[in-house]
Simulated scan of single mutants.
Amino acid sequence: MSSKTTLRVGRLVKAHGLKGAFKLELYTDSPDVRFAPGAVLKLQVPDSSPWFGKTVTVKELRYYNQAPVLFLNEAEDRTAAETLIKAILLVDADVEVLPEEPDAWYDHQLIGLKVMRDGALIGQVIRVDHLPAQDCLAIKTETGEVLLPFIKAFVPTVDVKAGEVVVTPPGGLFEELSEA
């Protein structure tokens, strides 16, 4: 029996053209999978929205000047599209299934993992921050929160099944912990 989680895959930024299309802000590394024709997406909108509790179906994902533009079956014209602006698009995903690319994980698979350094437990991953330069793991330690760049040099091992990540941080980040 597998459990499901809801993933944010995009946000409708603004209406595009007259045929009900949207400029799309992507929150996924696999837009061609998440926005394949026929894909059903849940909507995160205010309770007052006429779209609250409804789903939409992807008609087509195109790119104009390298920018993603999404067409939905439910938005036939610009007027309809305007009612969906700022909606967050969600999908249900199997918690156990990893992304197809190697060394890729969903945030929910990393949160809660023990953080090990030189065989010692030094903290726990409490969130993943997606920053412009790179992703960072937010690690709760005995002395507070530390942001560690989520790169292979600093996080060589992620073992979701074992519930831990192994870190080899640069000097200065966790030094006070190693003295204890």
Results as ranks from 00 to 15, higher is better:
11 R>F: 07
145 E>V: 15
118 D>W: 00
40 V>D: 15
17 G>T: 01
63 Y>W: 03
81 A>R: 02
17 G>Y: 05
43 L>C: 09
146 V>S: 09
17 G>S: 10
123 G>H: 04
78 R>M: 09
31 P>C: 10
11 R>W: 05
134 Q>P: 08
57 T>V: 08
29 D>T: 03
179 E>P: 08
145 E>P: 05
114 K>A: 14
147 L>K: 13
90 L>W: 01
65 N>T: 10
29 D>H: 12
168 T>W: 15
140 K>T: 15
71 F>T: 11
98 L>Q: 10
164 E>F: 14
39 A>N: 02
112 G>Y: 01
143 T>I: 13
93 A>Q: 08
116 M>E: 08
64 Y>K: 14
176 E>H: 15
17 G>E: 06
88 I>A: 05
77 D>V: 01
157 T>P: 03
108 H>F: 13
47 D>F: 00
141 T>Y: 09
37 P>G: 07
143 T>K: 01
150 F>H: 11
67 A>D: 06
167 V>F: 06
43 L>R: 00
170 P>R: 15
124 Q>C: 05
62 R>N: 02
55 T>K: 14
44 Q>F: 00
173 L>N: 09
139 I>S: 10
107 D>G: 02
79 T>Y: 04
112 G>P: 13
32 D>H: 13
113 L>A: 07
138 A>R: 07
50 P>H: 08
138 A>C: 12
60 E>I: 10
5 T>N: 06
61 L>C: 08
170 P>A: 10
35 F>G: 04
26 L>D: 01
28 T>I: 04
176 E>W: 14
90 L>E: 11
147 L>A: 11
106 Y>N: 09
63 Y>I: 03
6 T>S: 15
10 G>W: 05
122 I>S: 01
105 W>C: 01
65 N>M: 04
111 I>G: 02
59 K>Y: 04
147 L>P: 07
169 P>C: 09
99 P>R: 06
165 V>A: 06
65 N>P: 09
137 L>D: 00
151 I>P: 06
27 Y>P: 12
43 L>N: 03
85 I>H: 01
162 A>C: 07
96 E>M: 08
97 V>L: 14
173 L>P: 04
49 S>V: 09
132 P>M: 12
80 A>C: 06
160 V>H: 02
142 E>M: 08
131 L>M: 13
57 T>I: 05
166 V>H: 04
124 Q>T: 09
107 D>E: 12
143 T>R: 01
178 S>D: 11
146 V>Y: 03
156 P>Y: 05
80 A>H: 05
150 F>Q: 06
143 T>P: 00
151 I>W: 02
163 G>N: 13
45 V>G: 04
126 I>F: 11
9 V>E: 05
159 D>R: 10
118 D>T: 02
74 E>M: 03
41 L>S: 04
138 A>V: 15
34 R>Q: 12
179 E>C: 10
90 L>K: 04
8 R>T: 15
